[in-house]
Design a protein around this nucleic acid. Structure first.
Lengths: 156, 156
DNA sequence: TATTGTTATACTCTATAACTATA
DNA sequence: TATAGTTATAGAGTATAACAATA
């Protein structure tokens, strides 16, 4: 039990640090919100043997856009070597597979298996629920404003 | 030069992936915006031998709130052992120091040196500029809305 | 007994460079 | 010569457990 006369708790405790410049910093708030969102999503995906990374690749494989590994690398801002590992993982789990590009034999295109589509459907439901919970403190209007702003930041 | 008839570029290229479910996902957008903000801040802080982590600890040391290591750990959501390493770093650089708590000899309180305060002033200016640039695509009203929303997410 | 700070260790993530096969 | 994918490796970041000093 902390001593009430200790310097440790002389003010209102931890809360007083929110009043500092750090608590007003946009980058700090963004980092914390992201950490919360990330761990909520990863927790929701654990039931399906996925993490945010592998789920993102799976979702893009399911999309039907037939992304190449290079495109996945650029879009997800991950190194090509990390994409290799993620696809290996999805392939081992029977969720996706590589298909050679018809016109350029250097290129692999990533497509989902039927099982991958099914797992994605369920995983997506789970992450949607987790997101709704994580962002539940915001009303619909606020959430839309934030998304619109983040989209402009992210695409820029 | 990519072959225009290749499957790789049959649609509009990378941009077509933004139309998928991933490009609409709040967590995905948040993660990307955070990555951009983080690398901009780290780049700005490199001139001062700091990173976002060490800068945050320094800023809290400068605040005058005399945070304990435990409080820094909880507020920044970093493990106590990571706080140890960050303070060691600041101490080696002469920017901050540990002071034993008067009432509880187990506790260390972290305070900035005069040099630490000066470096913080300059580093803060640099990160403010970097932030203004990173979030420059948003007008002031949007930025305030986003900050308010993030603050509610982060504190919750 | 419980807590603060510390050390040690392992695990994940990330970044880099070198290699192959194709173009 | 350049590009797509692959492999290997090292560095940064993160999580966990055990420990000494103090409460």
């Amino acid at each position: 039990m902390p001593n009430a006369t200790s310097e440790t708790t002389k003010e209102t405790g931890l809360a007083r640090l929110w009043g500092t410049v750090v608590g007003e910093d946009t980058a700090f708030l963004l980092a914390r919100a992201n950490a919360l969102s990330l761990s909520a999503a990863n927790a929701a995906l654990a039931d399906y043997g996925l993490k945010v990374r592998s789920y993102s690749v799976l979702a893009l494989a399911v999309s039907g856009e037939r992304p190449t590994q290079r495109e996945l690398s650029e879009f997800l801002r991950l190194d090509p070597s990390q994409i290799v590992a993620l696809i290996d993982e999805l392939e081992r789990a029977g969720l996706a597979r590589r298909e050679p590009d018809v016109n350029d034999r250097r290129v692999n295109v990533v497509v989902a298996t039927e099982h991958g589509r099914e797992v994605h459907r369920r995983a997506r439901r789970a992450t949607n629920l987790a997101e709704a919970e994580a962002f539940g403190v915001l009303d619909d209007g606020e959430l839309e404003q934030v998304k619109a702003a983040l989209r402009r930041l992210a695409e820029g």
